[in-house]
Structures are given as C-alpha cells and as structure tokens.
Design a protein around this nucleic acid. Structure first.
Length: 882
RNA sequence: GGGCGAUUAGCUCAGCGGUAGAGCGUCUCGUUUACACCGAGAAUGUCGGGGGUUCGAUCCCCUCAUCGCCCA
C-alpha cells in the first residue's frame, strides 16, 4: 500500500541511480531508431545550479525524455566549459589565501593546480544537475579542455589562420587592468556612472589669449591627446581648422582637425582626441593622421610617455591631478555634472581601458555571412521567431572577434615565433619547428605565444567537437546537425551565433535545426535575481522543500513563449499539491484493485463513463504531444494538470465509485481495467515533466514490470477512441450535478441532507441519461431520488434549467423565498442580457449579410437556449409570487 | 537615440477576430471509507488610454502613457 503522501526525498536518489545504471540515458549509435539530439549548453565548470539552469535543463530534459519515449535514439550531450577567466580567478583566490600568486608557481604548476581544483570542485554543477533529474548521456560527458576538444581547437585555429580568417593585429582592445587581459566586446558591460564633463581651455598656438574649449569625461587622457577635432560645418571654429593648440601640462603642439565625429551640440562642440585610449578617437586619429601615444601600462597607470609629474599615477589619481593643475593654470572653464555609460569588465567589475596591443582576431564578418543566410533561408529556425531579429542585428554589424587572452588557463594559442618575430602557426610544436627550420635553413629556437584563447572559441565548436571531430566518428555522422538548441536570449551572441559560424564553416551544415529561446527567471516582483539584491531563489532549496517534480512542473507550466518567468514559491507549492493529488489518486486505484490488465484494449467498452474517459485521455495525449513539439511547455503542463485533476480525479473516479462497489461484475471489471489504464497513461504523459513520482508510482502499481517508465513508449491513440456521444452524455451529467450542487449551496441546504430531485419536461434522451447514471447523480449531488416530475411543480421549490429540462428541488418550508427570488431574477437577467446582445447582432443587416453562416447559426442557437432558459426560470419565479 | 517585449480578476499569468480563463488568494459550507498538500459552492474584470480597420476588436493597425530588456 502506498504511503499517505508522496515523499520526494525518499525516492529521487534511488530512481536516478537506477536510471543511470540501467543505461537509460545513453544514446545508441548502432540503433536503427531515428536520432534526436540536443547539445547541452555547457555550464561553467565553476558554476553552481541557479534558477536559469533549472529552467533550461528542465526544458531540455522534458524534450529528451519525451523523444526517448517516442522511440527516438535520444542523445543529450552533456559537459562543462573551462571558463578561462572565472576559473583562473577562483584558483588564484585560493592561492592568495596561502599568500601566493600564480607567478610564484609559474605557468605549469599553476595549470596543475587548476586541474586539481577541477578534480575536486568542478563536479558541483553536474551533481546538481542529477538532482534536477536531468537525463543526459553522462558517458559522453565532455570538458572543453579535454584532449579531443583541444585538438579540435588547434585544428580550427590553424585552418582559419591558413584561410586568413584568423590574424594578428594591433588595435585598441578592451583591456581589463585588474585581470591584465584583453576581453571581447561581449564581455564588457556598460554601466551608468555619475561623473562630470570637464571643460578645458587649450591655448591656440600663436594667438595670445585665445583658446578652444574641449569637454571630456576623462581628464587624465589629455596627456595623450594628439589633436582637437571640430565639426567641419561648425562656423565657430572654421577659422581654427589647420591651426594648432599647445597641449597644456605637456607642451605638445597638436593640430585642430575637421571631423564629423565632433558633435556641435555636445559640450563646446570641440573634442580632444586621444587615439590610443578611446575607440572613437582611434578612428578619428586614423582618418586625420594623428599619432597614437600610449600613455598607460597594463595596470592603467601612466607611463613615461607623460611628463614626469604624472608618471606612475593610477588613472584616477592622475585625473585629480590633471584637473587641479589645469585649474591652477586657469585653464579649467567649468565642471558640468554628467551621467554617462562606462564600459566595465563583466568578471572584474573595473572600468575597461581601451588599450593598444597586439591581439589575435577572428574575421567574424566573413564567417557571419553564411550564418546569416542559414537563418534567412530557414535552415535554422528560431522559436519564438522574433529572436531572429536580435541574431541578424548583431551578425550584420559584427566586429572582429578578439580571441586572445592574457591568462594561463585555457587553450594556448598554437603559434610559435622565431627570433626575428616570424610566426609559425601549426597544430603541434614539432610541425612548427619543422616549418621554422625549413624557413631559416637551420635549427632555430622558437618561443610559443603565451596567450590562450577565449573560452567561447572552444564552446563555438561544441556541437561537433564533442562528437569526435576532427575524426570522422560514427557519432559525428549520426548526430550532427542536432535537432534543437535550448538556451536563453542572453547567450545568442556569445554562443549561438558563434556555433552557427563555426558549424557551417567546418561541418558544411548548420549545427541545429531549431533554436528555442526561453525566458529569464526573475523573482516574484519581476526583478532579475542577483546575489547583491539578495533575491535569489536556490533551486536546490525548492527541491528540498517541494521535491524536484514540483519545481520542474512549475518551471514548465510557466515557460510561456516570449515572456519572462516571475517565480513565486506559492506556485511551486501548488504543483507540489498536484503531485500529492496524483499520488492519492494512485493510492485510491491501488485500494480498489485497479491494476493494469495485460492486453486490455480500451475499445468496445460497455460503460459510457469508460468510453468517455478513454476519449478524453486520447485527446489529452494528442494535445500534450502537440504542445511539446511546438515548444509550448506551459500548454502541455496545463493540459495535463487539467486532465489529471479536473477530469480524472474530480469526475471519473467519483463517477465510477458506484460501479466498483455495485453488483455488475463485468462492468466493475471493465472499470477497474480502464481506471488502471488511464492512470498508467497519465504516468506516461507526465513522466517528461515529473520523472520521479511517475517512475515511483509506475514501479509500485504493478508487479514485475519488464522495464522502467523512462524507457516506456509514449501513448499514441487514434481519434477512434474519441466518442462524442459519450462526451455529450457525461457532459450532461456533469452539468446536472453542478447545477444541483449550486442550488443546494446557495439555498444553504446542509450537505448531509438527502433531498429528492425532479425533472420536469425531460425528453427521451435526458430520461435515458438519467436512468443510466442515476447512481452517480444521487451520490455526487447528494440526492435521495432523481425522477421525472409527474404533474405540477410543488410549491416552494427551487428550480434551474438544464437544456429542455427544468430541475426541481422541492424544498417547501426550507427555502428562503426571498433569496430564491433574488437568485432566479439574477439568472433571468443574465439570460436576457445575452438575448439582447444577440438580437442586436442578428438585427444588424451587415452582420447577417457578411458574417459566416456558421457564426450566424451559432448565434441563433445560443439565443434559443437562452430564451428557453429564461422562459422556464420566469415561470419558476411566477410560482414564487405571493 | 535605435530595437524588442509587456500592460487581462487582489496576486502570478494563459488566451485570442464571434460566449473573458487558470492557479494562488478571499468568502461560505463540509469528519461522503484516495487525498484538509482535500472536497463543494460563491464573489471579483469599461482585457492601460485614445483613434482606426471590420458586420463584429481583449485580439489586427496607428498613437499616447507606464514598466522592463537589449543595443548605441
């Protein structure tokens, strides 16, 4: 016998272990089944499970379990990425606790430390994924720093370099002065900073007492100014173009140039140009032939390129001093408070310094072209479609991708330099050496490029590197391209776009047919969850409190397309209750010996109620499958919730109680078999959403199952199971019972009072239905009898209308007549309002002329129904008149 | 500044050219042998404002307002 309530903690671990040990998660490369593949977006190896993970992996697991049950050879490819900067930071933090830096260890020993750390702590997130019930093929788990994946990275780098699509260039990069590395545009976040706009006077050369005012948010950069720009159309400065100013504090003679970058509306209209420390200024400098003077070092301290007084100052100290010194010289015109966006490193949180360095770049614009075309032509489809715009927008304006990082943890760039700086890019040191020796004509010592690649460079190869590329493995042939990528919109640029570029370039086909973009999970007030706000909900806490299935069901139920999820714990609680409801329904079935009958086919059933529930089941199965395949997870969840609770538990189980305890043995047997079948099928349908409770019930409800639910077949029924006559009939019974219950409740008839029901004007069909279902009706409406009314309606009766029938509850002496009059009046008003509305429509010539026939017919029918009801109710009201 | 999205019951959200829905919450009733993490019943909406298209608009179009996100 099942326990009284479901206790998730007691079964989750057991089932997960059994699933994994039985090989249920593993894809079968040799099978004849059609493959279905999802590439798990590899979580960061330093990460731990947050709500966003819980959502994305729940949805992926739902899809995988569903397709697995549909008989596909389902591959959900798991793994983690090495998160270069984040991981290095973690390990460096640990070292600093011992008072050491990575430089104390040296590169090799530091890398060993990182691997040690990974072995100890890198498995956190994959362990947590297991608690979520995720069912990826763990045997195929990959890590971006694995040997195989590293080989893929080297090969891609070398090939792209040969094709001229990777190159080294000296450009301004986003330099992180704290982490001492370049980062890509995407790793920079703009933060709003309250600062100032300082207006400085730059004296014009040769014109005593005349100056030009420039405005800047970064005074310290003026030490590297090599020009002043004004708009060519700006009348105020026209005569100054071509002249020079003498840069204060420095004494450098710098030109005034005309460039449209200077905005006459902003500040003074003149702008100082520091080509080496500002992206816009860099472009102006290039256009106007200005020198780029690098005045900062890797820590963003001033170099020897500035006057001695400023050397070695941090950029913010330098700012203060520059302002003070200019003020002392009378060259500070005004200070204007100014709020502006300042780029910050997303990992370090410090302001980024545009810095002129040599870095490796990918020619993203070239690779983007076919990736854009693939989405335009529909070879890859975004769901919801609107995200294609985001993708196009970024891809069409894509900048060169800076891929080199000045850190140690990552794929070291396979480039070696000869003594004269000649670069040899090869997959191995041996090949590079051979090339170099040939080049120089003698054995020549080489130095390897010290930089590593952006982590996303290796992630971009994930859809094929995990399958064995560059080797031509059976997995690669079978599972690429994958079916769907499931991820959040925040990762479209970082990852989706880059996988598209690399996949198409190296595999000749898109990496996935569909990209499903889901929502972000927010707190119940709609705010993004963050540690600093203290509003994070830990999925593991929710799992502790409510069980994994409740969390999963909640996330799926709230995953409506194109909308963020505001998660409140009471929703999770509600779905925990749903799990308990299911559990108790199963317990009831067990108590009533409703066990699955081998070979039982739900066709040719004798009991209307059984034909009805089987039809509803078939409809539910169809709708759920349809919803999942359309990525409408909320609909799938809603349909299942409604059917399980609202139809099966609330009505079917109640309807069949009299049959189970009655004398008709064949009917009882049929009903037991049907009940067991429907419950069993509910477990199947719910399994992708609630794997644990369904597996547990499946195990407990029958002895000696040949397999586990995870490996069972998805229910597929044809439309022949849907019996519309049975549906109409049961619908009538439901409406009758509801009506009686409502009258009783409104008239305050105690639930314990068994009263008679009389049916006035009942037609043959209604009378037959009444006879068939009398037992159910008496029980569920708590009636003493239900008979056709012969003769007049008794005095003081309560009445309601059900199609052509008037339902009569003789309650003389019990009824509060005023209350009943009020109730009837209200009902009548409802119907007459309806009639009025319909008459207005039908009286409109245009409507009758232009609306489709079936709409007009429907209106006529509705009018007739309302008219009938209101007539009958009016009669009932008249009878109550004194 | 450009783009996207949202605005529906007290709350969280579905829906959608032709009866406005769910869950939670609220109120009333309930020791019916699966379930109080339950059952029965009830109340609650000018579907953000204003225009337009249409026989008909919560839904399509325009506009305004408010909020959120992304990009500059």
């Amino acid at each position: 016998m099942l326990e009284k309530t479901y206790r998730p903690a007691e079964v989750e671990e057991k089932h997960y272990r059994l699933w994994e040990e039985s090989g249920a998660f593993a894809a079968d490369t040799t099978s004849n089944a059609r493959p279905y593949t999802i590439m798990m977006p590899p979580p960061n190896v330093t990460g731990s499970l947050h709500m966003g993970h819980a959502l994305t992996f729940t949805l992926q697991d739902l899809l995988i379990r569903y397709q697995r049950m549909r008989g596909k050879d389902a591959l959900w490819q798991p793994g983690t990425d090495h998160a270069g900067i984040a991981t290095q930071m973690v390990v460096e933090r640990n070292l600093s606790a011992e008072g050491k830096t990575r430089h104390d260890l040296g590169r090799d020993r530091f890398i060993d430390k990182v691997w040690e750390w990974k072995a100890e702590s890198g498995g956190t997130i994959t362990r947590q994924l297991r608690r979520l019930g995720a069912s990826p093929d763990w045997g195929k788990e990959r890590f971006t720093m694995d040997e195989g994946l590293s080989k893929a990275v080297r090969k891609v780098f070398v090939e792209l370099h040969r094709q001229g699509l990777i190159y080294k260039d000296k450009r301004l990069v986003n330099w992180d002065p704290k982490l001492h590395t370049a980062i890509s545009d995407l790793e920079v976040e703009q933060r709003e900073i309250k600062g100032n706009l300082w207006h400085f006077r730059y004296p014009i050369e040769g014109e005593e007492g005349r100056w030009i005012v420039v405005a800047t948010t970064r005074p310290e950069t003026m030490l590297g100014d090599t020009g002043v720009a004004v708009h060519p159309e700006d009348e105020r400065y026209r005569d100054l173009i071509g002249k020079h100013v003498v840069l204060p504090l420095v004494g450098r003679r710098i030109p005034i140039v005309a460039d449209e970058y200077a905005d006459p509306e902003t500040g003074s209209g003149a702008v100082k140009i520091t080509p080496a420390h500002d992206f816009n200024d860099f472009e102006v400098g290039k256009r106007c032939g200005l020198e780029a003077i690098n005045i900062m070092d890797r820590d963003a301290r001033l170099t020897d390129a500035v006057p001695e007084a400023y050397r070695g100052l941090d950029r913010y100290e330098a700012r203060k001093k520059v302002v003070a010194d200019l003020e002392a010289l009378g060259l500070l015109e005004t200070i204007e408070p100014h709020t502006h966006m300042v780029p910050h490193g997303d990992r370090s949180g410090v302001a980024i310094e545009p810095w002129l360095t040599d870095q490796w770049y990918v020619d993203a614009a070239t690779l983007a072209k076919p990736a854009i075309e693939a989405v335009e032509s529909g070879r890859t489809v975004f769901v919801p479609k609107q995200w294609e715009n985001t993708y196009f927008e970024w891809m069409r304006n894509i900048q060169p991708w800076c891929i080199s990082r000045q850190i140690w943890w990552g794929h070291q760039i396979p480039a070696w330099y000869g003594p004269d700086g000649t670069v040899f890019v090869e997959e191995t040191e041996e090949e590079a050496q051979a090339r170099a020796d040939a080049h120089y004509g003698a054995p020549t010592p080489l130095t390897r490029d010290a930089d590593v690649l952006d982590t996303w460079f290796s992630s971009a190869l994930w859809p094929f590197s995990t399958l064995g590329w560059p080797d031509r493995t059976p997995e690669l042939a079978r599972y690429y391209p994958t079916d769907v990528l499931v991820t959040g919109f925040d990762i479209i640029f970082f990852w989706v776009a880059r996988m598209m570029m690399m996949g198409i370039h190296f595999m000749g086909d898109v990496p996935f047919r569909t990209v499903y973009i889901h929502a972000l999970v927010r707190d119940e007030k709609g705010q993004k969850m963050s540690k600093s706000k203290g509003n994070v909900m830990d999925p593991l806490d929710l799992i502790e409190s409510y069980g994994t299935d409740a969390l999963r069901f909640t996330l799926a139920a709230m995953a409506a397309q194109g909308r963020d999820i505001k998660l409140a714990t009471n929703r999770v609680e509600g779905y925990r209750n749903f799990a308990t409801k299911l559990w108790n329904a199963a317990r009831y079935c067990q108590m009533n010996a409703c066990v699955p009958v081998d070979g039982f086919r739900p066709t040719g059933l004798t009991q209307t109620v059984n034909r009805w529930i089987v039809g509803e089941l078939a409809e539910t199965a169809r709708k759920v499958a349809e919803s999942i395949e359309a990525y409408k997870f909320n609909e799938a969840a809603g349909t299942l919730y409604q059917f399980t609770w609202g139809t099966f538990c609330d009505w079917y189980l109640e309807f069949t109680k009299p049959i189970l305890t009655g004398n008709d043995a064949p009917a009882a047997a049929e009903t037991r078999a049907t009940t067991a079948l429907v419950l069993d099928q509910i477990l199947h349908l719910l399994h992708p959403l609630m794997p644990y409770i369904t597996e547990e019930l499946w195990e407990q409800l029958a002895e000696g199952r040949a397999n586990r639910l995870i490996s069972a077949a998805w229910p597929e029924y044809g439309p022949e199971l849907v019996d519309t006559a049975a549906r109409d009939e049961m619908d009538w019974v439901v409406r009758l019972i509801s009506s009686v219950r409502s009258m009783r409740s409104e008239m305050n008839v105690p639930p314990s009072a068994q009263i008679p029901l009389m049916l006035k004007d009942a037609g043959a069909v209604s009378l037959k239905r009444l006879d068939t279902h009398r037992d159910q009706i008496l029980r569920l409406a708590r009636l003493a009898s239900a008979e056709p009314l012969a003769g007049d309606v008794p005095k003081g009766a309560v009445q309601d209308v059900l199609d052509e029938v008037t339902l009569v509850l003789p309650l003389e002496g019990v009824v509060d007549l005023d209350k009943e009059r009020a109730r009837l009046t209200k009902e009548i008003e409802k119907h007459t309002a309806e009639i009025r509305k319909i008459d207005a429509k039908l009286g409109n010539e245009q409507f009758v002329a232009k609306a489709p026939e079936e709409v007009i017919e429907e209106q006529r029918e509705r009018r007739a129904t309302a008219q009938q009801a209101s007539d009958k109710l009016r009669k009932a009201l008249e009878m109550l008149a004194r």
